[in-house]
Amino acid sequence: MLVMNDIKKVFRTDLVETHALRDFNLQVDEGDFVAVTGPSGSGKTTFLNIAGLLETFEGGQYLLDGQDVSQLNDKARSQLRNEKIGFIFQSFNLIPDLDLFDNVDVPLRYRGFNAAERKRRIESALEMVGLANRMKHLPAQLSGGQQQRVAIARALAGEPRFLLADEPTGNLDTKMAHSVMELLKEINQAGTTIVMVTHDPSLARDAKRNIYVRDGKVSELHSVGQELPDAANA
């Protein structure tokens, strides 16, 4: 499904070279729900960006659905992102002057669906996150938890196989965080593979599988039930 072998990623600035990922190895199977924890700066976001084709890498191999993505051009990568991958970000990243309907519409526009199909998908996605009655509202009129739900609806409207979430609950209070987590679990039950970066061990515990990243490597892999290393509170 998603296979990374010895992925390397170096950020170079004039002064420093940062090895964000070094020999990063991971395999995620269809239908999995992986929670990624690790200290700040360990490379979790970099991993997610590479997995989501938002970033290129220097060494190693990345197979998405068995396809080697390193040789694809911008158009092909964009199309893969559009069709197979949904993103959820910590800061929601809704477009402030588009209403909820138009925000959820954004990925669908690049998909080439006709107006009726887009409308159907937008309505059912907003329905699923419980915001169908707020379609004409602007993001600023919603609470943080609701905004993240809109972002989830946007990620789901295209019916992607993968959902990549980078600290989706980082800006939410505990109660909202748990309700978003419940929503993600439902989505996973319905068949979508999820990779979620989080700082919150209690949320990580709810996932099917946990991985721990340190210094740009997957340092420990363990299934739910085992005890988490305490570095998750970084």
Binding site: G52, L54, D74, K75, S78, Q79, R81, N82, E83, F87, N93, I95, V106, P107, Y110, R111, R154, A155, G158
Partner: peptide, 13 residues
């Protein structure tokens, strides 16, 4: 722009 790129807009779009 970053968001649109992430959800599938190509540079051409």
């Amino acid at each position: 722009i970053g968001l649109r790129r992430a959800v599938g807009a190509s540079k051409g779009d």
